[in-house]
């Protein structure tokens, strides 16, 4: 049984992002990339599923050669093989989902893991779209998962609580923080990952439905104001909060 994990290659959350000169993309200068943090939970859950029920964990990623760093990390964590669906151009979530769905179909995989969202564009939609294109069941924002034969029981986070759902394979699961504790890549894993082949294919053709018109940074926050440093400043503070900031 094949278990597919769809991973994306995103800017390190500690990296400083600037908008590129075209006003539509990010300036790549000094930006380092990492495995999308939510995808790490997805990889871990796939590995645990394999450890419990057997199978083969296949990493699939859409993008350029640069995605290989992320793929290698997933392989070092213990995934068995990987496919890079190449496209040099920007793809929106729909076009990414289209490429992934085609590959998953070709792999004949029935358990698919995603992170609940990629922290680059934060659309939180690729997993659901892929499931729809494949006609698979889909459970999102999963924090606990049990797969027993064809039966899938998942706990998902909802506003103010948790929801337990049951469904069956084939299924797309999108992973939320808390689902597990992702393992570290091991030295042995790194050595083995070097020997694992990354299969490269052209990503299935798909048109974007979205166009990025403009990208800009939020206006810088106005500097804070120190009204005073002891109790005597309180009346003035209250006045400013009421009259200037208009928050009380």
């Amino acid at each position: 049984m094949k278990i597919v994990v769809c991973v994306s290659h995103v800017p390190d959350t500690a990296t400083k992002i600037n908008v590129g000169s075209d006003g539509k993309t990010i300036d790549q200068n000094g930006v380092t990339y990492v495995v999308n943090p939510y995808d790490e939970f997805a990889i871990e859950e796939a590995l645990k599923t394999k450890e419990k029920s057997g199978g083969e964990v296949v990493i699939v990623s859409v993008g350029t050669d640069k995605n290989k760093d992320t793929i290698r990390k997933a392989l070092a964590m213990g995934a068995d093989s990987a496919v890079l669906l190449k496209d040099e151009n920007y793809r929106d979530s729909f076009a990414v989902a289209k490429a992934l769905a085609e590959e998953i179909k070709a792999q004949d995989a029935r358990i698919i893991f995603f992170g609940k969202q990629s922290v680059d564009y934060d659309n939180s939609i690729t997993g659901q779209m892929t499931a729809e294109m494949l006609g698979y069941n889909c459970v999102t924002v999963v924090v606990r998962l049990e797969i027993d034969g064809d039966k899938v029981t998942a706990e998902r986070e909802i506003e103010g609580g948790k929801e337990v759902v049951e469904t069956s394979l084939p299924v797309v699961i999108t992973a939320q923080k808390g689902l597990n504790e992702p393992r570290y890549a091991s030295l042995k894993g790194i050595m083995q990952a070097k020997k694992k082949k990354i299969e490269e294919k052209d990503a299935a053709a798909a048109d974007n439905n979205l166009e990025i018109v403009k990208m800009f940074k939020p206006a810088p926050k106005a500097p804070g104001k120190i009204v005073g440093e002891d109790v005597s400043a309180v009346p003035e503070l209250v006045r400013l909060l009421r009259e200037e900031a208009k928050v009380i």
């Binding site: 500690a14 990492v34 890549a185 030295l187």
Partner: peptide, 16 residues
Amino acid sequence: DTEEVWFATGDKERRE
């Protein structure tokens, strides 16, 4: 056991 050696594959893991 080199399978239990935590290895930083990038800056992020190194920070960890």
